[in-house]
Amino acid sequence: LQAFIKTLTGKTFTVEMEPSDTIENLKAKIQDKEGIPPDQQRLIFAGKQLEDGRTLSDYNIQKESTLHLVL
């Protein structure tokens, strides 16, 4: 599935991932794409901060969901 990552500066980019991917995997993909170390990334979806060990499906993240990236 493709999801949108929106930063506080208003920049939006897309990442490809599977519902079974962990938040940790997602942070690694963001690092590959944007060069931001995972330990500096905080991802917010539906008002909740996402925990590394959980999966996208745990948070009911669907295709074309928008996640907010806070540094």
Rank of each mutant, 00 (worst) to 15 (best):
L56S: 02
E64T: 10
D58C: 03
I61H: 04
T7I: 10
P19V: 09
L8R: 12
T22G: 03
F45L: 09
A3F: 15
V15Y: 03
E24V: 07
P19L: 12
E24S: 13
V15G: 01
D21T: 05
I23V: 13
Q41I: 12
Q49R: 09
A28T: 09
G35R: 05
Q31N: 09
T22H: 03
L43M: 02
R42N: 11
D21V: 03
D32W: 10
H68D: 08
V70K: 06
E51I: 08
Q49G: 06
I61G: 04
I36L: 05
G47P: 01
F13P: 00
G35Y: 02
T14S: 10
T22R: 07
L50T: 03
I23Y: 01
K63C: 06
N25L: 13
K27D: 00
K63I: 08
Q31C: 09
I61M: 07
T12F: 10
L56E: 01
L56Q: 01
D21R: 02
S65E: 09
G35L: 04
T14R: 07
S57F: 09
L71W: 08
T22M: 05
Q31R: 12
K33M: 14
I30C: 00
P38W: 10
E18V: 11
D32R: 11
Q31T: 09
V15L: 11
L56T: 03
Q49M: 14
K6H: 14
D21C: 04
L8M: 14
E16N: 11
A3K: 02
T14N: 05
N25T: 13
A3V: 15
L50V: 05
M17D: 00
Q62Y: 11
L71F: 09
K11N: 08
E16A: 09
D39S: 14
G35P: 02
D39M: 10
I44R: 05
R54P: 03
E64N: 15
D58N: 03
L1H: 05
E51D: 08
P19I: 11
T9A: 12
I44M: 10
I30H: 00
T66I: 15
I61T: 06
K63F: 11
R54A: 09
L69I: 12
A28W: 11
P19H: 08
I23P: 01
D58P: 00
S57V: 07
A46Y: 10
K29G: 02
D21K: 03
E18R: 13
T12L: 10
I30G: 00
Q41E: 00
Q2F: 11
T66E: 09
I5R: 00
E18H: 14
D32S: 11
Q49D: 13
K6V: 15
T66Y: 08
T9R: 10
D52H: 05
G47K: 03
L8F: 11
T55M: 10
R42W: 09
Q41S: 03
A46Q: 15
T12K: 07
L43K: 01
Q40R: 11
L69D: 00
T12G: 06
L43I: 12
N60T: 06
R42A: 07
D21E: 08
T9C: 14
R54S: 07
Q49S: 10
T12Y: 09
A3P: 08
E64G: 15
T7L: 14
I5N: 02
K6D: 04
T9L: 09
K27V: 01
K6P: 02
D21A: 09
K6E: 09
I23R: 01
